[in-house]
């Protein structure tokens, strides 16, 4: 099947440029850096010194749910940056160097070309998220207290939808522009803009994808999945699919115009 061939080509390419190694490792580092550094904060402060004798610093004891949010916070900032930077050239770069013309000159359907790239990226991102958050879960259980595997898996699944949206935004801009730098910039700008708009119209945009982490925190604390969380996830998926369809149409128009 054509789609499988394209998908397999992407996956082997990720092996060749070592993405299968470094992206999961970076996600692990991002997910565990806050749990570990917060745990050692008292020692770090002590060793840095400079505090007068008898200073007592009361550091809050973090609940496991709060620590999960710290890990997600790192993934939301630096993790999203990594996803954006590693995906900025996936189509744009090929269009620039002419590889995509070589591929698309054959009877390859545009939708196969784009969805295969999208699926391959998602496989990489979801695998990295899974490994990273499981590492974080391991540390939380050692350092902060018990958190059930069930709830961390739910966190991974719901948060994965948010990263799916990030990948979809990147794929969409990949089809519009040939310069990877512009793709990365616009992807980041779009995500920042979305969060600003969500904050301004917070009373209307209750199910904005940017609220996903907020509802996730609720879920970890209360242990029950709210309907807001489910609807936000559904909205996120719909927007992702919409972007994917827009990307297919955009690439078709662009390539036919050439």
């Amino acid at each position: 099947m054509q789609w499988m061939a394209l998908f397999r080509k992407e996956i082997t390419e990720y092996w060749r440029n070592k993405k299968w190694i470094w992206v999961p490792l970076v996600f692990i580092l991002l997910a565990i850096i806050d749990p570990v550094s917060n745990y050692y904060l008292p020692q770090i402060l002590e060793s840095v010194g400079g505090l007068p004798d008898g200073t007592v610093i009361e550091l809050p004891d973090f609940a496991p749910a709060e620590v999960v949010m710290m890990s997600l916070g790192q993934l939301s900032s630096l993790g999203v940056l990594v996803i954006t930077l590693m995906s900025m050239a996936t189509i744009a770069g090929e269009r620039r160097s002419g590889v995509s013309e070589l591929i698309l000159v054959k009877p390859v359907a545009y939708r196969n070309y784009i969805t295969a790239k999208w699926a391959a990226l998602l496989a990489l991102v979801w695998a990295s998220l899974l490994i990273g958050m499981l590492a974080s879960w391991y540390y939380i259980n050692i350092l902060y207290g018990e958190l059930s595997l069930h709830s961390i898996l739910l966190v991974i699944i719901f948060y994965g939808f948010w990263l799916t949206l990030v990948v979809s935004v990147s794929i969409f801009y990949n089809t519009l522009f040939k310069t990877p730098g512009i793709v990365a910039f616009l992807t980041i700008a779009t995500i920042i803009l979305m969060s600003i708009v969500t904050q301004i119209f917070s009373h209307v945009l209750v199910w904005s994808p940017n609220n996903l982490t907020m509802y996730l925190m609720e879920m970890v604390q209360t242990g029950s999945i709210s309907s807001d969380l489910v609807w936000t996830a559904i909205v996120t998926i719909i927007i992702s699919i919409g972007l994917l369809i827009a990307a297919i149409i955009a690439l078709k128009k662009k390539e036919l115009a050439n």
Binding site: W22, I32, A135, Y139
Partner: peptide, 18 residues
């Protein structure tokens, strides 16, 4: 060291692979 070693190992792997 049970907590810190994995971090050091990950950093070492990244450097070696790069």
């Amino acid at each position: 060291w049970a907590i810190v070693t994995p971090i050091l190992i990950i950093q070492a792997i990244l450097i070696i692979v790069a």
